[in-house]
Design a protein around this nucleic acid. Structure first.
Lengths: 186, 186
DNA sequence: ACCTGAACACCGTTCAAGT
DNA sequence: ACCTGAACACCGTTCAAGT
Protein backbone atom coordinates (compact mmCIF):
# COMPACT_ATOMS: atom_id res chain seq x y z
CA UNK A 1 0.00 0.00 0.00
CA UNK A 2 3.02 2.32 -0.19
CA UNK A 3 3.66 5.14 2.23
CA UNK A 4 0.48 7.00 3.03
CA UNK A 5 0.42 10.36 4.72
CA UNK A 6 -0.39 10.01 8.38
CA UNK A 7 -2.19 13.32 8.50
CA UNK A 8 -3.61 15.80 6.01
CA UNK A 9 -4.93 19.36 6.05
CA UNK A 10 -8.48 18.32 6.74
CA UNK A 11 -7.70 16.45 9.90
CA UNK A 12 -5.34 19.20 11.08
CA UNK A 13 -8.16 21.74 10.78
CA UNK A 14 -10.54 19.27 12.39
CA UNK A 15 -8.58 19.05 15.60
CA UNK A 16 -7.75 22.77 15.56
CA UNK A 17 -11.47 23.59 15.47
CA UNK A 18 -12.04 20.98 18.15
CA UNK A 19 -9.41 22.48 20.42
CA UNK A 20 -10.83 25.96 19.85
CA UNK A 21 -14.27 24.80 20.81
CA UNK A 22 -13.03 23.19 24.01
CA UNK A 23 -10.43 25.66 25.20
CA UNK A 24 -10.77 28.83 23.15
CA UNK A 25 -8.22 30.69 21.11
CA UNK A 26 -5.29 30.09 23.44
CA UNK A 27 -5.76 26.32 23.41
CA UNK A 28 -5.01 26.17 19.69
CA UNK A 29 -1.24 25.77 19.58
CA UNK A 30 0.85 23.88 17.09
CA UNK A 31 2.00 21.58 19.87
CA UNK A 32 -1.50 20.85 21.10
CA UNK A 33 -2.76 20.11 17.59
CA UNK A 34 0.24 17.88 16.94
CA UNK A 35 -0.14 16.01 20.21
CA UNK A 36 -3.78 15.23 19.55
CA UNK A 37 -2.74 13.86 16.16
CA UNK A 38 0.07 11.78 17.63
CA UNK A 39 2.67 13.63 15.62
CA UNK A 40 5.42 16.18 16.25
CA UNK A 41 4.62 19.89 15.83
CA UNK A 42 6.95 20.16 12.87
CA UNK A 43 4.86 17.71 10.89
CA UNK A 44 2.06 20.27 10.70
CA UNK A 45 4.09 22.62 8.55
CA UNK A 46 3.68 20.39 5.54
CA UNK A 47 -0.09 20.92 5.66
CA UNK A 48 -0.37 24.44 6.94
CA UNK A 49 1.82 27.44 6.13
CA UNK A 50 1.93 28.82 9.64
CA UNK A 51 -0.34 29.55 12.55
CA UNK A 52 -2.23 32.32 10.77
CA UNK A 53 -2.99 29.92 7.96
CA UNK A 54 -4.24 27.42 10.53
CA UNK A 55 -6.72 29.95 11.90
CA UNK A 56 -7.81 30.96 8.41
CA UNK A 57 -8.52 27.32 7.74
CA UNK A 58 -10.60 27.00 10.88
CA UNK A 59 -12.57 30.14 10.01
CA UNK A 60 -13.25 28.91 6.50
CA UNK A 61 -14.48 25.66 7.97
CA UNK A 62 -16.87 27.49 10.28
CA UNK A 63 -18.31 29.36 7.30
CA UNK A 64 -18.68 26.23 5.20
CA UNK A 65 -20.44 24.43 8.03
CA UNK A 66 -23.23 26.99 8.06
CA UNK A 67 -26.26 25.58 6.34
CA UNK A 68 -27.83 27.91 3.79
CA UNK A 69 -31.59 28.34 3.95
CA UNK A 70 -33.65 26.91 1.13
CA UNK A 71 -34.31 29.54 -1.53
CA UNK A 72 -37.96 28.63 -1.56
CA UNK A 73 -38.73 30.07 1.87
CA UNK A 74 -39.58 33.72 2.45
CA UNK A 75 -36.67 36.16 2.39
CA UNK A 76 -37.37 37.36 5.92
CA UNK A 77 -37.12 33.81 7.18
CA UNK A 78 -33.94 33.19 5.21
CA UNK A 79 -32.22 36.17 6.80
CA UNK A 80 -33.41 35.04 10.20
CA UNK A 81 -31.97 31.57 9.66
CA UNK A 82 -28.62 33.02 8.62
CA UNK A 83 -28.53 35.33 11.61
CA UNK A 84 -29.33 32.47 13.96
CA UNK A 85 -26.56 30.42 12.39
CA UNK A 86 -24.10 33.25 13.01
CA UNK A 87 -25.18 33.49 16.62
CA UNK A 88 -24.90 29.74 17.16
CA UNK A 89 -21.44 29.63 15.59
CA UNK A 90 -20.29 32.56 17.72
CA UNK A 91 -21.53 30.80 20.83
CA UNK A 92 -19.60 27.69 19.94
CA UNK A 93 -16.40 29.62 19.06
CA UNK A 94 -16.54 32.88 21.02
CA UNK A 95 -12.84 33.57 20.62
CA UNK A 96 -12.30 32.51 17.01
CA UNK A 97 -15.53 33.79 15.44
CA UNK A 98 -14.61 37.48 15.93
CA UNK A 99 -11.69 37.01 13.55
CA UNK A 100 -14.23 36.95 10.71
CA UNK A 101 -14.28 40.74 10.83
CA UNK A 102 -10.54 40.84 10.29
CA UNK A 103 -10.18 38.51 7.30
CA UNK A 104 -11.06 39.05 3.65
CA UNK A 105 -14.67 38.16 2.98
CA UNK A 106 -13.77 36.82 -0.45
CA UNK A 107 -13.07 33.18 0.34
CA UNK A 108 -15.46 30.57 -1.07
CA UNK A 109 -17.06 30.12 2.34
CA UNK A 110 -17.65 33.84 2.72
CA UNK A 111 -18.91 34.36 -0.83
CA UNK A 112 -21.35 31.53 -0.32
CA UNK A 113 -23.01 33.31 2.58
CA UNK A 114 -22.82 36.73 1.01
CA UNK A 115 -24.57 35.29 -2.00
CA UNK A 116 -27.37 33.94 0.16
CA UNK A 117 -27.84 37.33 1.80
CA UNK A 118 -27.88 39.15 -1.53
CA UNK A 119 -30.37 36.69 -2.89
CA UNK A 120 -32.71 37.29 0.05
CA UNK A 121 -32.40 41.05 -0.34
CA UNK A 122 -33.22 40.84 -4.05
CA UNK A 123 -36.26 38.72 -3.31
CA UNK A 124 -37.28 41.38 -0.83
CA UNK A 125 -37.47 43.76 -3.74
CA UNK A 126 -34.56 45.93 -2.71
CA UNK A 127 -33.22 47.94 -5.68
CA UNK A 128 -30.22 46.25 -7.25
CA UNK A 129 -27.93 49.22 -6.56
CA UNK A 130 -28.67 48.96 -2.86
CA UNK A 131 -27.98 45.25 -2.56
CA UNK A 132 -24.19 45.24 -2.10
CA UNK A 133 -24.35 48.06 0.42
CA UNK A 134 -27.13 46.40 2.35
CA UNK A 135 -25.30 43.09 2.28
CA UNK A 136 -22.17 44.57 3.83
CA UNK A 137 -24.26 46.44 6.34
CA UNK A 138 -26.18 43.35 7.39
CA UNK A 139 -23.24 40.98 7.49
CA UNK A 140 -21.15 43.43 9.50
CA UNK A 141 -24.02 43.91 11.88
CA UNK A 142 -24.65 40.19 12.22
CA UNK A 143 -21.04 39.33 12.93
CA UNK A 144 -20.73 42.28 15.28
CA UNK A 145 -23.84 41.43 17.23
CA UNK A 146 -23.09 37.71 17.39
CA UNK A 147 -19.60 38.55 18.66
CA UNK A 148 -20.91 40.99 21.23
CA UNK A 149 -23.45 38.52 22.48
CA UNK A 150 -21.02 35.61 22.65
CA UNK A 151 -18.38 37.57 24.51
CA UNK A 152 -20.73 39.37 26.89
CA UNK A 153 -20.04 42.85 25.56
CA UNK A 154 -23.50 44.10 26.45
CA UNK A 155 -23.37 42.72 29.98
CA UNK A 156 -27.12 42.95 30.45
CA UNK A 157 -29.54 40.02 30.50
CA UNK A 158 -29.81 38.11 27.25
CA UNK A 159 -33.30 39.45 26.67
CA UNK A 160 -31.71 42.77 25.72
CA UNK A 161 -30.08 41.16 22.71
CA UNK A 162 -33.38 39.61 21.65
CA UNK A 163 -35.04 43.00 21.93
CA UNK A 164 -32.27 44.58 19.86
CA UNK A 165 -32.83 42.00 17.17
CA UNK A 166 -36.58 42.53 17.18
CA UNK A 167 -35.92 46.24 16.79
CA UNK A 168 -33.54 45.61 13.94
CA UNK A 169 -35.99 43.33 12.18
CA UNK A 170 -38.64 46.01 12.31
CA UNK A 171 -36.21 48.54 10.91
CA UNK A 172 -35.20 46.22 8.14
CA UNK A 173 -38.77 45.75 6.98
CA UNK A 174 -39.33 49.49 7.01
CA UNK A 175 -36.13 50.06 5.13
CA UNK A 176 -36.84 47.68 2.35
CA UNK A 177 -40.21 49.34 1.87
CA UNK A 178 -38.62 52.77 1.93
CA UNK A 179 -35.98 51.93 -0.66
CA UNK A 180 -38.46 50.24 -2.92
CA UNK A 181 -40.58 53.37 -2.92
CA UNK A 182 -37.56 55.56 -3.54
CA UNK A 183 -36.57 53.41 -6.50
CA UNK A 184 -40.11 53.45 -7.85
CA UNK A 185 -40.14 57.26 -7.77
CA UNK A 186 -36.85 57.49 -9.63
CA UNK B 1 13.17 62.10 47.98
CA UNK B 2 12.78 58.56 49.30
CA UNK B 3 12.28 55.58 47.03
CA UNK B 4 10.03 56.50 44.18
CA UNK B 5 8.47 53.94 41.88
CA UNK B 6 10.41 53.75 38.66
CA UNK B 7 7.32 52.94 36.63
CA UNK B 8 3.57 53.15 37.12
CA UNK B 9 0.46 51.87 35.34
CA UNK B 10 0.15 54.93 33.14
CA UNK B 11 3.57 54.64 31.63
CA UNK B 12 3.17 50.87 31.21
CA UNK B 13 0.01 51.43 29.16
CA UNK B 14 1.73 54.25 27.30
CA UNK B 15 4.44 52.05 25.91
CA UNK B 16 2.05 49.13 25.35
CA UNK B 17 -0.10 51.36 23.14
CA UNK B 18 3.04 52.66 21.46
CA UNK B 19 4.27 49.15 20.69
CA UNK B 20 0.85 48.17 19.37
CA UNK B 21 0.81 51.15 17.05
CA UNK B 22 4.25 50.34 15.70
CA UNK B 23 4.14 46.57 15.48
CA UNK B 24 0.58 45.41 16.01
CA UNK B 25 -0.85 42.98 18.48
CA UNK B 26 2.07 40.55 18.43
CA UNK B 27 4.60 43.25 19.28
CA UNK B 28 2.99 43.86 22.65
CA UNK B 29 4.77 41.39 24.91
CA UNK B 30 5.63 41.74 28.55
CA UNK B 31 9.30 41.56 27.66
CA UNK B 32 9.06 44.23 24.96
CA UNK B 33 7.16 46.59 27.25
CA UNK B 34 9.66 45.97 30.04
CA UNK B 35 12.65 46.49 27.80
CA UNK B 36 11.38 49.82 26.53
CA UNK B 37 10.92 50.86 30.16
CA UNK B 38 14.39 49.72 31.15
CA UNK B 39 13.02 47.24 33.64
CA UNK B 40 12.63 43.46 33.92
CA UNK B 41 9.38 41.84 32.74
CA UNK B 42 8.52 40.81 36.28
CA UNK B 43 8.35 44.43 37.37
CA UNK B 44 5.24 44.92 35.25
CA UNK B 45 3.18 42.58 37.39
CA UNK B 46 2.97 45.11 40.16
CA UNK B 47 1.11 47.51 37.86
CA UNK B 48 -0.87 45.15 35.69
CA UNK B 49 -2.61 41.91 36.68
CA UNK B 50 -1.63 40.00 33.59
CA UNK B 51 -1.49 40.37 29.86
CA UNK B 52 -5.26 40.50 29.42
CA UNK B 53 -5.36 43.37 31.89
CA UNK B 54 -2.65 45.11 29.90
CA UNK B 55 -4.76 44.95 26.73
CA UNK B 56 -7.86 46.09 28.58
CA UNK B 57 -5.87 49.07 29.75
CA UNK B 58 -4.76 49.90 26.23
CA UNK B 59 -8.33 49.62 24.93
CA UNK B 60 -9.65 51.88 27.63
CA UNK B 61 -6.98 54.39 26.74
CA UNK B 62 -8.00 54.33 23.09
CA UNK B 63 -11.59 55.06 24.09
CA UNK B 64 -10.63 57.87 26.43
CA UNK B 65 -8.48 59.49 23.76
CA UNK B 66 -11.45 59.90 21.45
CA UNK B 67 -12.61 63.48 21.53
CA UNK B 68 -16.35 63.90 21.99
CA UNK B 69 -18.10 66.32 19.65
CA UNK B 70 -19.47 69.50 21.14
CA UNK B 71 -23.12 69.11 22.10
CA UNK B 72 -23.96 72.34 20.35
CA UNK B 73 -23.42 71.02 16.84
CA UNK B 74 -26.10 69.19 14.88
CA UNK B 75 -26.73 65.57 15.81
CA UNK B 76 -25.92 64.32 12.31
CA UNK B 77 -22.54 66.02 12.48
CA UNK B 78 -21.89 64.65 15.96
CA UNK B 79 -22.48 61.08 14.81
CA UNK B 80 -20.25 61.67 11.83
CA UNK B 81 -17.45 62.94 14.05
CA UNK B 82 -17.72 59.90 16.30
CA UNK B 83 -17.71 57.53 13.34
CA UNK B 84 -14.66 59.26 11.89
CA UNK B 85 -12.91 58.96 15.24
CA UNK B 86 -13.63 55.23 15.31
CA UNK B 87 -12.25 54.83 11.81
CA UNK B 88 -9.11 56.80 12.62
CA UNK B 89 -8.49 54.81 15.79
CA UNK B 90 -8.98 51.54 13.93
CA UNK B 91 -6.48 52.66 11.30
CA UNK B 92 -3.93 53.44 13.97
CA UNK B 93 -4.52 50.17 15.87
CA UNK B 94 -5.86 47.68 13.33
CA UNK B 95 -5.09 44.66 15.49
CA UNK B 96 -6.10 45.97 18.90
CA UNK B 97 -9.20 47.96 18.00
CA UNK B 98 -11.23 44.86 17.05
CA UNK B 99 -11.03 43.69 20.68
CA UNK B 100 -13.59 46.40 21.50
CA UNK B 101 -16.29 44.04 20.29
CA UNK B 102 -15.16 41.41 22.76
CA UNK B 103 -14.95 43.43 25.96
CA UNK B 104 -17.73 44.78 28.19
CA UNK B 105 -18.92 48.16 26.96
CA UNK B 106 -19.45 49.30 30.53
CA UNK B 107 -16.09 50.85 31.34
CA UNK B 108 -15.95 54.63 31.88
CA UNK B 109 -14.38 55.10 28.45
CA UNK B 110 -17.11 53.09 26.75
CA UNK B 111 -19.97 54.70 28.67
CA UNK B 112 -18.64 58.09 27.73
CA UNK B 113 -19.00 57.38 24.04
CA UNK B 114 -22.27 55.53 24.38
CA UNK B 115 -23.60 58.58 26.20
CA UNK B 116 -22.56 60.83 23.34
CA UNK B 117 -24.31 58.59 20.83
CA UNK B 118 -27.50 58.42 22.88
CA UNK B 119 -27.48 62.18 23.27
CA UNK B 120 -27.24 62.65 19.51
CA UNK B 121 -30.06 60.19 18.89
CA UNK B 122 -32.29 61.98 21.40
CA UNK B 123 -31.58 65.30 19.76
CA UNK B 124 -32.55 63.66 16.49
CA UNK B 125 -35.98 63.17 17.97
CA UNK B 126 -35.79 59.40 18.13
CA UNK B 127 -38.36 58.02 20.61
CA UNK B 128 -36.79 57.34 23.98
CA UNK B 129 -37.64 53.64 23.87
CA UNK B 130 -35.68 53.28 20.64
CA UNK B 131 -32.56 55.01 21.87
CA UNK B 132 -30.76 52.12 23.63
CA UNK B 133 -31.45 49.75 20.75
CA UNK B 134 -30.31 52.26 18.18
CA UNK B 135 -27.20 53.02 20.19
CA UNK B 136 -26.15 49.36 20.30
CA UNK B 137 -26.97 49.02 16.64
CA UNK B 138 -24.93 52.05 15.65
CA UNK B 139 -21.94 51.36 17.87
CA UNK B 140 -21.77 47.73 16.76
CA UNK B 141 -21.97 48.84 13.16
CA UNK B 142 -19.34 51.54 13.62
CA UNK B 143 -16.85 49.23 15.31
CA UNK B 144 -17.58 46.50 12.80
CA UNK B 145 -17.13 48.74 9.79
CA UNK B 146 -14.05 50.45 11.15
CA UNK B 147 -12.53 47.04 11.85
CA UNK B 148 -13.43 45.73 8.40
CA UNK B 149 -11.96 48.76 6.73
CA UNK B 150 -8.77 48.77 8.79
CA UNK B 151 -8.10 45.09 8.23
CA UNK B 152 -9.05 45.00 4.57
CA UNK B 153 -12.02 42.69 4.98
CA UNK B 154 -13.85 44.18 1.99
CA UNK B 155 -10.85 43.94 -0.32
CA UNK B 156 -12.30 46.36 -2.82
CA UNK B 157 -11.13 49.94 -3.37
CA UNK B 158 -11.60 52.25 -0.42
CA UNK B 159 -14.32 54.13 -2.27
CA UNK B 160 -16.62 51.18 -1.60
CA UNK B 161 -16.44 51.88 2.11
CA UNK B 162 -17.24 55.53 1.56
CA UNK B 163 -20.22 54.54 -0.56
CA UNK B 164 -21.40 52.15 2.16
CA UNK B 165 -21.23 54.94 4.67
CA UNK B 166 -23.12 57.34 2.43
CA UNK B 167 -25.78 54.66 2.04
CA UNK B 168 -25.93 54.14 5.78
CA UNK B 169 -26.23 57.86 6.43
CA UNK B 170 -29.16 58.11 4.08
CA UNK B 171 -30.82 55.17 5.78
CA UNK B 172 -30.27 56.65 9.20
CA UNK B 173 -31.98 59.91 8.28
CA UNK B 174 -34.94 58.06 6.80
CA UNK B 175 -35.16 55.78 9.78
CA UNK B 176 -35.18 58.51 12.36
CA UNK B 177 -37.98 60.17 10.45
CA UNK B 178 -39.89 56.92 10.26
CA UNK B 179 -39.60 56.18 13.96
CA UNK B 180 -40.61 59.69 14.89
CA UNK B 181 -43.74 59.33 12.82
CA UNK B 182 -44.46 55.93 14.32
CA UNK B 183 -44.12 57.35 17.81
CA UNK B 184 -46.32 60.32 16.93
CA UNK B 185 -49.08 58.01 15.74
CA UNK B 186 -48.99 55.93 18.92
C1' DA C 1 6.62 12.65 0.10
C1' DC C 2 6.25 12.94 4.72
C1' DC C 3 7.74 12.92 9.43
C1' DT C 4 11.46 13.57 13.11
C1' DG C 5 15.54 15.48 16.03
C1' DA C 6 17.80 19.07 17.40
C1' DA C 7 18.00 23.68 17.96
C1' DC C 8 16.78 28.77 18.22
C1' DA C 9 14.77 32.61 19.93
C1' DC C 10 11.30 33.63 22.12
C1' DC C 11 6.83 33.65 25.37
C1' DG C 12 3.81 34.58 30.31
C1' DT C 13 4.08 33.89 35.03
C1' DT C 14 5.62 32.35 39.91
C1' DC C 15 8.13 33.15 44.02
C1' DA C 16 11.59 34.06 47.06
C1' DA C 17 15.07 37.36 47.60
C1' DG C 18 17.07 41.87 47.60
C1' DT C 19 17.02 47.13 48.72
C1' DA D 1 6.91 49.32 48.28
C1' DC D 2 9.04 48.15 44.35
C1' DC D 3 12.24 45.75 41.46
C1' DT D 4 15.31 41.58 40.44
C1' DG D 5 17.21 36.61 39.81
C1' DA D 6 16.27 32.33 38.96
C1' DA D 7 13.30 29.16 37.32
C1' DC D 8 9.27 26.78 35.02
C1' DA D 9 6.56 25.37 31.47
C1' DC D 10 5.58 26.64 27.58
C1' DC D 11 5.52 28.95 22.52
C1' DG D 12 6.29 29.18 16.71
C1' DT D 13 9.49 28.07 13.35
C1' DT D 14 13.93 26.54 10.79
C1' DC D 15 16.61 23.05 8.69
C1' DA D 16 19.03 19.09 7.94
C1' DA D 17 18.34 14.33 8.50
C1' DG D 18 15.91 10.08 8.29
C1' DT D 19 12.65 6.56 5.88
Amino acid sequence: MGRRALIDRTVVLDVAAELAEDGGFAAVTMQAVAERLGVTPMALYRHVNDKADLFDGVLERLLLEIELPDESVAWQERLRVLADAARATAQRHPEVFPLLLQRPSTTPGALRIRGAICSALRDAGLPEDDVPHAERLLSTLAVGFATSEATGRFEGPDEAVEADIAFLRELLLDLVELRRQAAARA
